[in-house]
C-alpha cells in the first residue's frame, strides 16, 4: 500500500501506515456493522408462517372436497381428520387414535373413521364404537367462510 509499483516509498514517515490502519479499521467497522445488521434484518423479515398459529388452520376449499370422504390436515404438530359426510356435513376430529397413537382414516365403505393398526372404529361423532380404542376422538370445530374450510380447537 505504502509502496508504489516501482517499490520505492511513496510517502515518507508514518502517514501511509496510518492510512492503511484507517482502511483496516474502516473496513472492519463496516464488516462488523454488516454482521450485526444482517441477523437483525433477517430477524425482522417475516417468517414463512407469519405468527404462532395453533388455534386454527385452513384446510382448503369446501367445494373441492368430495362428499363421503375424509382427509388428514396438519394442525400445528398434530394431524386432524376432516370428514365431509355423506349428508354434506363437515366434521373434524383429532386424527390420533386413542389406542396407540396411529393416524386414523375415513372409510367410505364403512361410513366411519377407522384405524389401520388395530381396527379401531369411531363413528362420525368421534365416539369409539368398536375395537381397542378406549376413548373417543376429540372433536374440532369446522367453520366454512367463503368456501374456505377453517378448523379450530373446540374451546
Amino acid at each position: 500500500m505504502n509502496k508504489d509499483i516501482s517499490g520505492k516509498e511513496q510517502f515518507p514517515g508514518t502517514i501511509p501506515r496510518r492510512d492503511f490502519l484507517k482502511y483496516i479499521f474502516g473496513g472492519s467497522l463496516l464488516a462488523w456493522a454488516l454482521s450485526v445488521l444482517y441477523p437483525i434484518l433477517a430477524y425482522l423479515k417475516p417468517p414463512k408462517q407469519p405468527e404462532v398459529e395453533v388455534n386454527s388452520v385452513k384446510a382448503g376449499k369446501a367445494s373441492a372436497m368430495e362428499k363421503d370422504s375424509g382427509t388428514i390436515v396438519k394442525f400445528g404438530n398434530k394431524p386432524v381428520i376432516l370428514v365431509h359426510t355423506a349428508s354434506g356435513e363437515f366434521k373434524a376430529f383429532s386424527a390420533t387414535c386413542t389406542h396407540l397413537d396411529c393416524t386414523v382414516q375415513y372409510r367410505k365403505d364403512m361410513g366411519l373413521i377407522w384405524c389401520a393398526c388395530h381396527n379401531g372404529r369411531y363413528d362420525l361423532t368421534g365416539r369409539n364404537v368398536a375395537g381397542p380404542p378406549p376413548k373417543p376422538l376429540i372433536e374440532y370445530r369446522v367453520l366454512i367462510q367463503n368456501d374456505e374450510i377453517l378448523i379450530s380447537k373446540n374451546t
Partner: peptide, 15 residues
C-alpha cells in the same frame, strides 16, 4: 471481524 476491529481500534488509540 470483531477481533480485527478490536486490534485496529487498539492501534488507533495508541496512535
Amino acid at each position: 471481524i470483531i477481533t480485527i476491529l478490536v486490534i485496529s481500534l487498539y492501534k488507533i488509540i495508541r496512535r
